[in-house]
C-alpha cells in the first residue's frame, strides 16, 4: 500500500505572468481528515488546490508527499468547479479514467455502472453527458473521480451552483468517500457545508494561509479578527 501522507508543504507558491496567485504556503496535512479551504473570492483557493494536485506549476518551495510525487499523482482525483463533460455517454464518462489506465472494458463498465448507481445516475447511463443538468453533471464528475478509488479527492466548490437537494446528495457521497478512507481537500464558500464536512480548516486571505486548525476550534473560536469577520459574513479583503 502506497502511503501519501503526511503531506508537507513548505514555502510553496505559484505565479502567473509574474503575479503571485497563491503562496508562499506552509501546510502539514495528514490522511483521513477532511480539509476545507475557505476564504474570500480571489484569495487563492482554486490556485492552492491546483498547486497541491500538481496542475499548477510550483514556482517556489516544496510539496512533499510521503511517496514519490508521480506515484502520489496516480492516487489523486480532481473535481473542477465547472465539471468537464467528455462528449460521450454518462456511462462512458465514468468508465473513462479506468479505460485510459488499462482496465479491461467489461470490468471498467461494471465499475462505472456501480458508481453511477451510487450517485443516482442509473436512469441516464446512455444519455450524452452534456445534456445533464448542473447537479447531474457534478454527480457524474464525482463518480468519475471516485471510480479509480483515489486516496485524495480535490474538489473545487463542488456545490457552487446547486440547489439544496443536489447539495445534500453530493455531501452524502463525500461523507461516504471519507468513511471509505479518501482524503478530501475541498474549497467552498458555503459556511454551512464547511461546518458539516470539515475536520480541519485552512483560511486563505490574499493568497496566504491566514489561519489554520481543527474545524471545531476554528468555527467556535477563530483566532484572527479577519477569520472572525469572515465567519460573521462581513466583507474581508
Amino acid at each position: 500500500m502506497t502511503e501519501l501522507f503526511p503531506l508537507k508543504v513548505r514555502g510553496a507558491a505559484t505565479a502567473r505572468r509574474g503575479k503571485m496567485l497563491v503562496g508562499p504556503v506552509d501546510l502539514d496535512l495528514c490522511g483521513q481528515k477532511a480539509c476545507v479551504v475557505i476564504g474570500p473570492n480571489g484569495s487563492g483557493k482554486t490556485s492552492l488546490l491546483r498547486l497541491l494536485h500538481g496542475a499548477a506549476r510550483l514556482h517556489r518551495g516544496t510539496i512533499t508527499w510521503a511517496c514519490p510525487t508521480d506515484e502520489a499523482r496516480h492516487h489523486q482525483s480532481f473535481v473542477f468547479q465547472r465539471p468537464v463533460m467528455l462528449r460521450r455517454s454518462v456511462l462512458d464518462n465514468i468508465a473513462y479514467p479506468l479505460l485510459v489506465h488499462g482496465v479491461k472494458k467489461p470490468a471498467a463498465l461494471d465499475a462505472a455502472r456501480d458508481w453511477a448507481g451510487r450517485v443516482g445516475l442509473t436512469e441516464m447511463l446512455r444519455r450524452p453527458a452534456t445534456v445533464l443538468s448542473g447537479g447531474e453533471q457534478q454527480k457524474l464528475a464525482l463518480a468519475r473521480a471516485l471510480v479509480t478509488r483515489p486516496k485524495v479527492l480535490f474538489l473545487d466548490e463542488p456545490c457552487a451552483a446547486l440547489d439544496g437537494r443536489a447539495m445534500r446528495e453530493i455531501e452524502a457521497i463525500l461523507t461516504d468517500a471519507k468513511t471509505a478512507g479518501t482524503k478530501l481537500i475541498m474549497t467552498t464558500h458555503d459556511m454551512g457545508q464547511a461546518r458539516r464536512l470539515a475536520d480541519e480548516v485552512v483560511f486563505l486571505l490574499g493568497g496566504l494561509v491566514h489561519e489554520t486548525g481543527p474545524a471545531t476550534t476554528f468555527f467556535d473560536h477563530p483566532e484572527t479578527p479577519e477569520a472572525r469577520a469572515f465567519l460573521n459574513g462581513d466583507i474581508v479583503e
Binding site: 496542475a55 467528455l86 473513462y96 485510459v100
Partner: peptide
C-alpha cells in the same frame, strides 16, 4: 478537455485518441 485529461495523467497517445 485539457484540465481533466491532465489531471487524470492521460498519456499523449491516449489524449490524441480521446
Amino acid at each position: 478537455y485539457h484540465d481533466l485529461l491532465i489531471s487524470m495523467n492521460v498519456s499523449q497517445w491516449q489524449k490524441m485518441k480521446t
